[in-house]
Amino acid sequence: MNWLTNNWHTVLDLAGAHLVQSVLPVVLGLLVSVPLARLAAGSRWLRPLLVTGSSLLYTIPSLTLFVVLPLVLGTRMTSVVNVIVALTLYVVAILVRSCVDAFESLDRDVLQAATAMGYRPARRFFGVELPLAVPVMVAGLRVATVSNISMVSVGAVIGIQSLGTLFTDGLRRSIVAEILVGIVATVLIAVVLDQLLRLLGQVLTRWQRPGTGAREAGGRRRRDTRGPGRTAGGARDATGALAAVESGGARA
């Protein structure tokens, strides 16, 4: 604790930098993903392109992006911009896929009822489609946020400042306390942001009981199945899609 009392200023600075590098990409990623997913939903060429693209992008290690991006963006290698852009790409990769699924799984009857009531397309999107897709979006955002917070620290390996700097510095100077403070601070940020998103999700989905929502909206519409098997299969499919989102997890 001695180390912390002497260095709390540095820790606070690094935590701030860490927060910016992990939260900004989530916001930017959300702003990009939602319109992109809406365009892709039901589109013949954009959908497979985005789904395949995001899947491939997700396979690229973050360190690779941190090192390659300066080449593309013309930034310095230690610039936080690289991290922000790279993580935004990951957030888009996670969110686009689940948002496309969410938009496509919306009950056609609900949409037609909305149109029949006189909703214009834009109003219908913000008034009906977006709220109904919220549970899946929140699930994706939570995964993206927690995984971002973990990935940001990796940037420290190539000299980008964040709480990860406490790890590299602590190792070099053999200060266990410094590393422990870094780990605790990182976990703290992850837990707090995750809970904030959970609360946000609950507030935005007051119209449904918690727990059932994500399952309904997460279900992919299966076109070639009929009969009672559909219920069993459908439930497994929907939970599976969500489980897939949830097992996305942190990566370096």
Binding site: R222, D224, T225, R226, G227, P228, G229, R230, G233
Partner: peptide, 11 residues
């Protein structure tokens, strides 16, 4: 596979 059958066929 079962998913390729109608409800009546499955029963």
């Amino acid at each position: 596979y079962p998913a390729q059958l109608s409800g009546g066929q499955q029963q």
